[in-house]
């Protein structure tokens, strides 16, 4: 069907065709819009983890972990700018739930990090890796994409094991892998809903 709809009568078959096409097109547009969020946070996570890794490695000081808080401080304003360009793209159930999952992840990650730094020392990398894998895995189920789901499982379970076996700045490389998985997720969504 041409992308120019008039208000004329049609057959039952044509009606069904319009319904299917409109629902699919709209879903594609909405999810394409979600892909850029995965790309943005994936790039930010990869770059931040590599920068902190390098600074920690060179100076020998874990104090550089404070730089993690730069990530949300930088990421959320960029999200606002990105969404502003496509401000007329609406929300559907899937992207609303994706947003809630990752917002919950972010809240957990920030609060647990603050508690770990100020009050109760814990293997924070393990907790964050599990949370990241968990959020990625559920995103895969929501998007009905097994590659994303398996990526989440590998990240969560593999990350938990790896962060228990390796220490100090080397743990940060788990998050570099996490960032790459998020970028790949964004690319998968972009291609799946092209």
């Amino acid at each position: 069907m041409e992308n120019n709809i008039e208000n004329k009568e049609m057959t039952a078959q044509q009606s069904l065709g319009i319904i299917t096409e409109m629902i699919n097109n709209s879903r594609r547009t909405i999810l394409q819009n979600s892909a850029k969020h995965f790309l943005l946070w994936g790039i930010l996570l990869t770059v931040t983890s590599l920068v902190i890794y390098e600074l920690w490695h060179v100076t020998g000081s874990p104090i550089w972990n404070c730089a993690w808080f730069v990530m949300p401080a930088l990421g959320f304003p960029i999200v606002r700018i990105l969404d502003g360009k496509h401000s007329d793209v609406p929300q559907n159930e899937i992207n609303k739930q994706l947003g809630l999952i990752w917002l919950t992840y972010c809240i957990f990650a920030v609060i647990i990090s603050v508690i770990a730094m100020l009050a109760v020392p814990m293997n924070i990398s393990l907790v964050i890796a599990v949370l990241l894998g968990f959020a990625e895995c559920i995103s895969g189920f929501l998007l009905k994409n097994w590659t994303i789901t398996i990526g989440g499982l590998i990240l969560g379970i593999g990350g938990a094991v790896a962060t228990s076996l390796i220490y100090n700045e080397a743990q940060l490389l788990i998050f570099t892998l996490g960032g790459i998985i998020l970028v790949v997720t964004g690319l998968i969504i972009k291609f799946q809903y092209k």
């Binding site: 004329k8 044509q14 409109m22």
Partner: peptide
């Protein structure tokens, strides 16, 4: 049962 109105409702 009109193309444009049906398209709007589908969206």
């Amino acid at each position: 049962h009109s193309e444009l109105r049906l398209a709007v409702m589908s969206i």
